[in-house]
């Protein structure tokens, strides 16, 4: 359905925006390395089914590979800036202060409690959903502390948030047309979108209505 395709496309767009920006400018200011590391973890734990070789479609398999590959490439590029632009890199690390363990730990516990089956694949899948819903927090935390972000960073976060938001009408659609309801996905998806809502509001006020992006 249209919402799901648009959601996937905006997810893809967010990654392309990020990749191109870092590649072109060799700058990492405003980007949280921790959030990017969390995304690698999210994709690697979610798409473990690639290893079972019971692939669903060319589209599905290809997108999964692209997401894993692109998230690893982002880390590589950021690490490249360490040499190219050490001052900006150090400044980023210095401001990227939210501790990952406070996110990974609770997500692991939640995955142990909420899952469909107590198997490694299912636990990892559930973990990836929980982790994805909070993976943006180091990035938002960084933004809220610095109070300023480049327009591209905000476009990136916007596209990323839009993706899960578009998945919500997709789930409603699938509930009625396929009688299908993936409770875990829906709940974590709502949580994820809720975390973005504040950001969406500021984005709308500042970026869409002109003016620079500045948090109060």
């Amino acid at each position: 359905n249209i919402f799901r395709i648009l959601g996937d496309l905006s997810h893809l767009a967010s990654i392309v925006i990020l990749l191109r920006t870092v590649q072109k400018t060799q700058r990492v200011d405003g980007i949280s390395l921790k959030t990017q590391i969390l995304y690698v973890l999210v994709f690697c734990t979610r798409y473990l089914d690639l290893l079972t070789f019971r692939w669903k479609s060319v589209y599905n398999t290809l997108m999964k590979m692209v997401f894993i590959g692109a998230s690893v490439r982002v880390i590589q590029l950021i690490q490249g800036c360490k040499i190219q632009n050490p001052v900006a890199y150090k400044d980023m690390i210095f401001r990227d202060t939210l501790q990952i363990k406070y996110l990974v730990g609770p997500c692991a516990v939640l995955a142990l409690i909420f899952n469909y089956k107590f198997t490694l694949l299912e636990l990892c899948w559930s973990f990836s959903l929980w982790l994805e819903s909070v993976a943006i927090l180091p990035q938002l935390f960084m933004l809220s502390r610095s109070g300023k972000a480049s327009t591209l960073t905000t476009h990136y976060i916007f596209a990323l948030g839009l993706y899960r938001a578009l998945y919500i009408p997709n789930w409603i659609w699938r509930y009625y047309s396929e009688d299908r309801l993936e409770k875990l996905s829906v709940f974590t998806g709502l949580l994820q979108t809720a975390l973005y809502s504040d950001f969406f509001y500021i984005y709308y006020k500042k970026v869409v209505k002109g003016a620079g992006f500045e948090l109060p």
């Binding site: 079972t52 669903k56 479609s57 469909y116 694949l121 899948w125 998945y167 997709n170 993936e182 996905s185």
Partner: peptide, 10 residues
């Protein structure tokens, strides 16, 4: 019955 094959979303 949520198996890994059911998870067709990204």
């Amino acid at each position: 019955d949520n198996t890994i094959e059911d998870k067709d979303e990204l």
